[in-house]
Design a protein around this nucleic acid. Sequence first.
DNA 1: TAGTGGTCTAGACCACACC
DNA 2: GTGTGGTCTAGACCACTAG
Lengths: 237, 237
Amino acid sequence: MKYQVISEEIRHRIESGFYPLDQPLPDEHSLVEEFSCSRMTVKRALDVLASEGIVFRKRGHGTFIVQSSFQSDYIHVGTNETLGFTSLMKEKKVTSKLISFDMIAPTAEVASYLAISEDTPVYHHIRVRCVDDNPHVIEETYMPTPLIPGITPTVLHNSVYAYMEKELGLKIAGSRRRIRAEQATAQDMEELGLSENEPVLVIEQVAYLNTGIAFEYSFARHRFDKFEITTVNINAK
Amino acid sequence: MKYQVISEEIRHRIESGFYPLDQPLPDEHSLVEEFSCSRMTVKRALDVLASEGIVFRKRGHGTFIVQSSFQSDYIHVGTNETLGFTSLMKEKKVTSKLISFDMIAPTAEVASYLAISEDTPVYHHIRVRCVDDNPHVIEETYMPTPLIPGITPTVLHNSVYAYMEKELGLKIAGSRRRIRAEQATAQDMEELGLSENEPVLVIEQVAYLNTGIAFEYSFARHRFDKFEITTVNINAK
DNA sequence: TAGTGGTCTAGACCACACC
DNA sequence: GTGTGGTCTAGACCACTAG
């Protein structure tokens, strides 16, 4: 993956200040010479950075660094990532409190999201995820049992995604999410320590394996003051 | 843009049921013959659909249709769109109530988001946007005056984005957003008709022109029960 | 082994921006 | 005109999947 190597190299140069912020990056021809590759490969490397909102490309003009100055005290997740909560909190201690765990027949709605029949049993669990012992999010999850064998309370106390990738060799390919605000329910208040008039950020998600099969339908209800989503959007040319 | 034409054609075929949902799409070689183009072009067309979550590609296996079954009573905006509220509501009547409109010196924070000096004046306006006369969202917006000349209350009662594109010939290239939940403020309650313990979905946005220049910093506070964001995320290979 | 998509090349022509 | 990025070609080799 030469284009990824080049993309990474240029990203590091931008982050380290090697390229001046107010100057265009070297043109594609120069980068072709430097990296000894074809122009398509350089272009693709720069397109990766453009899709991440790091640079901005303008035909007839050049490629420019976009200064992003979004900082925040919130934990934020980009919409380009499909990650479990555990890996988002890289440096921090994530623990889970298992509220319930059972195997049930899915409702028609859950079955349709997972594209399974109502006869296919699903794991159904509810967890409160804590960061440094402070509750952050309450998650309710449905997973078809045939896809994810061996889910146990032990696994649920840690990371299901890590279990899937490391133990089962499954690869997570993507997800669809719906994001909205809701009032805290009684359960939210109790488990997340919210008071009556405080909201939650709800993320409803269907996640897919690299086989195209849906493996998870979940609701995550996040403390409003601990979590936000960030998105970068570049219009198609 | 041959790849976009091919991409659209295949999208239509999928939506119209021309390709069976449970069968792989024709392989790239067949599509090359059908569309009389190079394989790179077909591949790019299919990559567009994959990035939209419409198809799923698997090396050594084929390209498959992903059934998306997200429906909802909410108005939803995809994170791949930078659109004004007006154009989101295609079929509906959008009106605006102008709460305030003035020209001010930006705070240090606003200036930094727009990458301008604190000496550059900005338009500052607050609007309530209504759909079919029901209030949906309250927006507070800052725009550098030199970039967007001729903003008037008349423009603000309609669509600023349409004004920029049609009258000023400016092109909107992209945006960065932060999405979170908050409690409704007194102003939210009054203008959006919310009650005390109901939340809002807050979207903080910096939007960019195709010159890479930020032209807008805004907060939109949406009724929690009228709006949601949808995202599709496909992991990099 | 055969067939699929992923990457890469070395060119070409075009659209756009600036001078 | 000159230089930029956007698109496209015709081929090549590779990695992965299935039988």
